[in-house]
């Protein structure tokens, strides 16, 4: 755990909505307090470090204006793609590694992990399969573009059932 990790952590905490945080990492204790969060959209909150933190960290902390990454949807490619999607031999499927219920988002109020047209990297979480109340994050093993989602949200899937059609890159 170095200073950079701690800075990162503080950013996560600031985003989480918590106002008081106690860290105990490798026998170092750190307490952080921030004023109550203002309305959504206002990002002028400051994080004060009140204990056992070297000075240079406080200087480096900036308000958490996390960059908003906008989804880049390549419309051109979608429209020119007129052959039925299943017939393209280059496409690969991501299959269910277990039996369970397929979920496209981490909770009903959240956006889906991925949508048709999104470009994903190997290691990105693409869905959750739940069995016996165990929620299993399924990561993609390939990089590419999502061509089709083959299963409806919150429906049961069998072992090895294809879930996503991917155009690898």
């Amino acid at each position: 755990m170095d200073l950079k990790d701690i800075q990162e952590l503080i950013k996560f905490v600031a985003k989480s909505g918590a106002t008081e945080v106690d860290l105990e990492i490798d026998n170092v204790k750190i307490s952080i307090k921030s004023p109550p969060k203002k309305k959504r959209g206002e990002t002028d909150e400051t994080v004060k470090i009140i204990q056992q933190i070297p000075q240079q960290i406080t200087e480096n902390i900036s308000p958490t204006n996390a960059p908003v990454v906008e989804k880049i949807i390549e419309k051109k490619e979608e429209t020119k793609n007129e052959i039925p999607v299943e017939e393209n031999e280059n496409y690969q499927t991501i299959k269910a590694s277990m039996i369970g219920t397929f979920y496209r988002s981490s909770s009903p109020e959240n956006d889906p992990f991925v949508n048709v047209g999104d470009t994903i990297k190997a290691g990105d979480t693409i869905c959750i399969i739940e069995a016996m109340k165990l929620f299993n994050e399924i990561d993609s093993e390939i990089s590419g573009k999502i061509i089709k989602v083959l299963v409806d949200d919150a429906t049961p899937v069998e072992f090895d059932q294809p879930l996503f059609l991917i155009e690898p890159n």
Partner: peptide
Amino acid sequence: FNNNIHLDSIS
């Protein structure tokens, strides 16, 4: 279990 993050409130 040595590393702890304690938050006063979290979703």
